[in-house]
């Protein structure tokens, strides 16, 4: 038989080596981009990050470099994102459960999924403009409530699709077993599916919360901005992404530096939510059948 010696310098083997190296480089570049982003935001934001930043509201002259912080924006953002997430849950949970227990992979189910994916793809600036158009029509002004509603629109397709994905991965025999034991479909949805997929649902909710807290374009028109901590849903509120955005647009260098610090705060919050959801779903997963 012919010798099967490797001809290292044969064209196709060189090609294999070459292509594989390029692919590894590409993956490293993408992964490296994350490192670059975090490094840039941390090194630039850390020097101006003070306790005042997170414990004070803007004082007089804050936007010209005087004292104060962005507590108003942090609290506003938490209200906005929490409100938006709660509102989105009211829509998402029933849709995701209905998709699983009643629709499955039927035509109508696919149609609902398609519309959710399309909603997911609509940029938040369009939701913002939509919210603004509604406010114009209703004669409303920018307020926490309007921001919450708009954010809920941004968040709910993300949340629903994420829930749908985990719920769909649930073993079918578990549902069958529950049905065979004499549960109605509604009870299956409520008790079996909901409980079994709790970790996935939690992840989906936190994913949407993270998206909501970082979104600027949708709250730009609808929630407004104010230096005071919001007290009523009918009043405008500041938000963290807009605090970053406005301060980075300032002509004063001190204000810009604090904008970077605000970006760092926002990044930390988002990362905490992201890792938190990972940790939480791993903990909750103990009670589910794999």
């Amino acid at each position: 038989m012919k010798k099967m010696k490797k001809k290292r310098f044969e064209r196709r083997h060189l090609m294999e080596f070459f292509v594989k190296s390029i692919m590894q480089t590409a993956l490293l570049i993408v992964a490296g981009a994350l490192g670059l982003i975090l490094w840039a935001v941390i090194t630039r934001g850390l020097p101006s990050l003070t306790w005042d930043m997170v414990s004070q509201v803007p004082q007089g002259g804050y936007y010209m470099g005087k004292e104060g912080g962005i507590l108003n924006a942090i609290i506003g953002s938490i209200y906005l994102a929490a409100g938006g997430t709660l509102l989105a849950m009211l829509l998402s949970l029933p849709i995701a459960l209905y998709l699983k227990t009643y629709l499955g992979d039927s035509k109508w189910g696919e149609c609902v999924r398609l519309s959710l994916d399309v909603l997911w793809g609509i940029p938040s600036i369009v939701y913002g403009a939509f919210g603004f158009a509604l406010m114009l029509t209703l004669g409303m002004r920018a307020s926490l409530l309007a921001g919450v509603v708009t954010l809920a629109l941004v968040e709910f397709p993300i949340m629903t699709r994420a829930m749908d994905e985990v719920i769909r991965r649930m073993p079918a025999d578990l549902e069958q077993a529950a049905l065979a034991l004499g549960s109605t479909r509604f009870e299956v949805a409520l008790h079996v599916v909901a409980r079994q997929t709790l970790p996935g649902i939690t992840t989906a909710i936190l994913l949407a919360f993270g998206r909501g807290i970082g979104d600027a374009a949708s709250v730009l028109f609808t929630a407004g901005y104010t230096d005071r901590i919001v007290t009523s849903p009918m009043r405008p509120t500041a938000s963290l992404p807009l605090a970053v955005f406005f301060q980075l647009g300032s002509p004063y260098p001190e204000v810009r530096e604090r904008g970077y610090a605000a970006a760092l705060i926002l990044t930390v919050i988002v990362l905490l939510v992201s890792f938190g959801s990972r940790w939480l779903s791993a903990r909750l997963a103990k009670y589910t059948i794999k």
Binding site: L36, G214, P241, V244, F245
Partner: peptide, 14 residues
């Protein structure tokens, strides 16, 4: 996942 979670405004800051 983290790359996808970073808010647009932070990308802008970067």
């Amino acid at each position: 996942d983290v790359l996808a979670a970073i808010p647009p405004v932070v990308y802008g800051a970067w």
